[in-house]
Every structure is written in C-alpha cells, then in structure tokens.
Design a protein around this nucleic acid. Structure first.
Lengths: 229, 229
DNA sequence: TTTAATTAATCAAACGTTTGTATTATATCA
DNA sequence: TGATATAATACAAACGTTTGATTAATTAAA
C-alpha cells in the first residue's frame, strides 16, 4: 500500500501525514478530525474507517516513531564496541533518525510528557525497553545509572538535546515560511541557515565531545567528592 | 489579595492552581473549563469573571513562570563574575526556580513548543529577552553563539536538561501516588528517591561539570577542527 | 445612624458551536 | 454479485462563553 493511486498517494497515507503536520504544530488535543480530513482531502468518515478513530492516528505515528528511535540507539554497537565509538554511533544514528523523521519524532517527544489514557500501555512498554537499553550502555562507560542523581541527569539526556535542536529548527523554518508569505521588503532580517550534511557533521562532532567527555569528567568528579556508589 | 477568606484561599488563586495542576498533566487543550471549575470548587462563570476566558489562565501562568525563570538567569552574575562561578550560580538558580515552581515551569516549557495564537506576541517577546541574555553569557565563556552549530546545541541547553529532570521527577511521583492508592501488596517495587537538598547539591555539582567543562572542551575541539569563526 | 445607592462576587441555566463517532447510502471494481 | 472504498448526514456529548438573577459588601446621602 501507500503507493500511488489515481495520481495521488493513498488516502490512509494522506491522513497520516496531514495529521502529523497538524499535531506537531498545535498538539494532538488542539486538532479536530474535520481539520485533518480537510487537509488530507478526504471525507471525515475515512479517519474512523482507516484508523478506528482520532487516537488511532496518534498511536500509529508514535509506534512508528518509537520503533525507529529504538532501532537507532540499539544498533549503535554492543559491549565489544569501544565506548567512544559507540557513543559516536549513537549520536550519529539519533541525529539521522531526527533528520529523516522530524515531524514524527517531535510528536513523539512532545506527547511523551502528556497523560493520554489510550497510550498508557504503550508508554509503559517503551519506558521499559528504553531504560534497559540505557542501563547497559552507560554501564560500559562506567556510569552507574541506578544512582538516582546520575539517572536524573542522563536519562533522556541525549535524546532531549537533539530533540531541542530539531524543535528549534522546526520553529525557525516555520517562521521563515510565514515571513516569506509576507511582503518582500520584510525578508532582509531573515538569516538563512543551511542544515546540510556539513552542518550535521560538525553538530555530531560537537555533541559527541560535549556528551562523552562531559559524562566521563562529571561522574569522576562526583565519585571523588561524594565517594563511590 | 490571595489571602485566606472564610477558611479558604481566594477563588482566583484556587482557579489558578487547579488549572495549573490539570494543564501540566494533560496539556492545555485537553482540559475543559468545567473540569477546572470543579477542581477549584467554583462556578464556571468565575473563570471568565477573573481571567477573561480559559486562555487568560494560561497567560497568567506563563507570564509568572517566565518572569521568575528570567530573573533566575539574569541574577547569576555579570561580566565581572568569573565564568565558572557565574555558570554555577546560573545552574543553582535555575534548579532553585524549578524546585519552587515545578508545575508552572513544566507548563511553560511544554507550552513553548505549541502554536497557540493568543500567545504569539508574548512568545516573541520572551524569545528576544532570552537570546539577548544567552548571547552575553556565552560570550564570556568564549563561545560565539551566533555560529549556527553552537547556537543549535546551546540554545535552551541548560534549561532543557533541568526541565528533563523535573519532568522525570513529576512522572515518578505521579506514578507513586497512583500506586499508593492501590493495594498495599504492590508497594514493594517502589524505590523511594528523596529529592532533598543533598540530592540537589550533588545534582548541581554534576550538572556544572557536565555543562561548563563540556562547553569549553567541545567548542575548543570544534575550533581546532573546523577553524575559528 | 439609619437608609438608599452602588459595586463586587457568585450562581444556575442556557447560548450557539464544535467535538469524535456512527449510520446509512452510493459508487467502484473484482 | 459481493467486497471495498467513499460520501453525506446524523447524533449525543462536550466545548468556551454569556446571561440575568441573587446575594454580600461597601459607599453615599439622609
């Protein structure tokens, strides 16, 4: 499925993408099914037909996003990979994931902090999978993630930082788009940033240093001052 | 105002606090005025009477939160303060701000990523104030925040990390509360974390090292590899 | 000091609109 | 002809807001 039909991609895909674009901008609860249907160019009834309801779209978006996000982190290496190389793979993979799935990723991170009853079960499963992965990874760096202070800082640390950038970038490009829709005279203030491969090469480099070096340095200092374990 | 009256705090304050508690849990758009009024123990009409509408409550919450957040950062020192000391003050102040205003702070950070038309003007003002402050602060550390790569990483970096922890803590304590409401036999799995002064002393220490040391190290490495400016 | 006028606070009820979903009917294609 | 896909419409529930009446508190005039 999801292929062309009558010169258009299939309706299910159109609903998915229209909903994602709206959710990421205003949030799940602020968007109505009529708005989604209009944007996707389908009848309202199609949403319940394909997704079983409004929340079905969100579920699909989030399951897709988490699957990719988890894979990006799990495939960064294993215990036989040197820690610094593993961290570099990790950062590079997560950045890649965000570049390829910006909308879904932002929805995922922004929905994670909300209490949405229909998602309770899924969220618990994701949380478990994620913390198992992190525990194992940090152990290799010599960081005891079961220490509440370390856990409080490093749980979601990397993803949070990268998410921050892509949210910032999303906002930037949204404003640029609305500004371009105005009269041309107002364009002069718009500094154009090229978010290309070169940009992300430097970005990943900087982040790896900030992350890996910072973790090693900070946790060692902590051990020296407050004693081991 | 906001004092005791008939043994209860005044209705405006009750609405404010009830709304904040609901907003932080499910998000602004998912909460209705009836739910707020019920939780606050007032009549629905009181919301429009005191706040001019549902969005008026959110505005008040956010303006209050930003004011305190900005002050926490602006009062960390000036150009005559040694950088490392200034960073320590900054981290300590922001952590203090979050400890004293957890609910408002989380609402502020979570609402910042949403397009809420009524808030457009306010958000632009806040963004300007914040970036002026950061530009000046990073300059003292030798970091050129106008470089898009540096800006992409360090804009909202510190606040994002700390927000992450308090969101994590909020989630933890929410789940604990609901678990305690269950039968006693299920309590055994609940590891109790004391988020006291000692905890945050270590937390601030670790964050300062992660932050300050990481920034200096990463930006220097970046300059060496990709050249200055 | 009592009475009258004014303001502030609260309430139940209803406003018109929009919400997500369900039903039913009609095309489209095998 | 039977299954799949699309559409128009209906529906109860919930939405944010407004209304007009009522009470309590305050101020002004007598």
């Amino acid at each position: 499925m999801a292929t062309k039909n009558n010169g258009q991609i299939d309706p299910k895909r159109r609903i998915f993408e229209a909903a994602a674009a709206l959710f990421v901008n205003k949030g799940y609860s602020a968007i109505g099914v009529r708005e989604i249907a209009k944007e996707a160019g389908v009848n309202i009834a199609m949403i319940n037909y394909y997704f079983g309801g409004k929340s079905g779209i969100l579920k699909d978006i989030l399951e897709d996003a988490f699957g990719k996000y988890y894979h990006a982190q799990a495939s960064a290496g294993d215990n036989s990979t040197p820690p610094e190389e593993r961290v570099r793979n990790l950062v590079a993979n997560v950045v890649q994931f965000f570049r390829e799935n910006t909308t879904e990723a932002l929805i995922f991170f922004n929905s994670a902090v909300l209490d949405i009853p229909e998602l309770k079960g899924l969220k618990e499963k994701w949380s478990k999978m994620y913390s198992d992965l992190m525990l194992e990874l940090f152990l290799q760096m010599g960081v005891e993630l079961k220490d509440p202070v370390h856990a409080s800082i490093y749980n979601g640390f990397l993803g949070g930082m990268i998410k921050n950038h892509f949210q910032y970038r999303y906002e930037l490009e949204k404003n640029k788009k609305t500004a371009e829709a105005c009269v041309e005279g107002d364009k002069k203030e718009l500094k154009h940033i090229e978010f290309d491969d070169l940009f992300y090469q430097r970005y990943v480099d900087l982040l790896v240093h900030q992350y890996f070096h910072g973790v090693i340095y900070a946790t060692q200092k902590d051990k020296m001052k407050y004693g081991p374990k």
